[in-house]
Amino acid sequence: MTSVDDAIPLLVCDDSSMARKQLIRSLPANWPFRVSQAENGVLGLELIRSGRGRIVLLDLTMPELNGFEVLARVRDEGLQAEVIVISGDVQEEAIRRARALGARAFLRKPVAAPELEAALLALGMNPAPAALQHHSQHPLPSVSFHDALRELSNIAMGRAAELLGRALKVFVHLPIPNVNLLEPGELQMALSDAQGNQQVSAICQGYIGGGVAGEALLIFHDSAIADVAGLLDTKLDASSHPELLLDLAAIITGACLNGLSEQLGLQLSLGHPLLLGQHCTIDELIRLNRPRWKQTLAVEISYGLEDHDIHFDLMLLFTESSVERLQQRVELLL
């Protein structure tokens, strides 16, 4: 029988309780792990220093210290840790950077149990045939609906960023998505906070399917559009401006909603994109579209392009009546 001293210290470092729960459940049942958890990079680094992360399953998009920063600290401090990155950021550049910083493997979320076991075996570990305990006995974090939807959105936005980065040939910085149930006034405040007083253009695209409905609102600074046109070697004029907005919306909104649909097991149909406002302020956009926005479950994602002052804000606005259906789908996943 394997003793406690022979157990393999494994750290799951991810800000999402849903991701941590899924990873712990995906661990090989016959491996003698002693599992620790960290919800941010700072705590994760402390646990690695204390010897509780001989193997580390590491997310990239986290508060305090992100995964790239954790990898850099592990390398610079000479810490003994075999790191497997498991991330929703699937850009080729993200994979390259993680490996350059010492990651032994890179797995895409959501990871399947056979993929995880193969990555663990590739580390050269030789688990004893008699396990110390089955991984189901490890404490599992509780997962709220908001945290689950945030993690699903994190994976979906990563797919959109991969397409966007490839189209623009840049690295896309990904945020931690915000998920909130907002009244109309609170939604207006969120929009104003996101964009300030600059002139903006906005594209709206409705979606519906499987008892879920809503609108995707994609907002651009006008100054950013000119820079994006430069990245694409596109001449920007009055006629090409709306066309460029619609092309970007097709990439960002389409990929993000498709990613959510696949994870939730829903078939969402997208409506035709509409230009809600062009060269206007957020206040004007709100005034023009206030009747459209009731109480809504809002997922807010802000994309930024590395080495460029370019930011996009994507808001997925689910109708209030969609929440119960979304909760049902999330419960099935958990």
Score class of each variant (00 low, 15 high):
147 D>S: 11
206 G>Q: 07
316 L>A: 03
218 L>C: 05
10 L>K: 09
128 A>P: 12
233 D>T: 09
182 L>T: 02
72 A>D: 15
74 V>P: 09
187 L>A: 06
47 L>S: 07
48 I>K: 04
90 V>E: 00
139 P>T: 09
138 H>I: 11
323 V>A: 11
169 K>F: 07
29 A>Y: 13
89 D>C: 01
17 S>A: 13
87 S>I: 03
115 E>Y: 01
259 G>F: 00
92 E>M: 04
280 C>V: 15
163 L>H: 05
333 L>S: 09
165 G>E: 00
106 F>H: 01
261 S>C: 07
102 G>I: 07
185 G>N: 10
111 V>L: 05
106 F>Y: 15
229 A>Q: 07
250 A>N: 15
289 N>C: 10
23 L>C: 03
219 I>C: 09
175 P>G: 05
251 I>A: 07
148 A>R: 01
309 D>Q: 13
241 H>S: 11
217 L>W: 11
53 G>P: 10
21 K>F: 08
128 A>I: 11
287 R>T: 11
58 L>E: 05
17 S>G: 00
256 C>W: 00
31 W>E: 14
254 G>I: 08
45 L>F: 10
154 N>P: 02
305 L>S: 06
64 E>K: 02
69 E>P: 06
264 L>W: 00
128 A>W: 10
154 N>F: 02
224 A>R: 02
311 H>D: 05
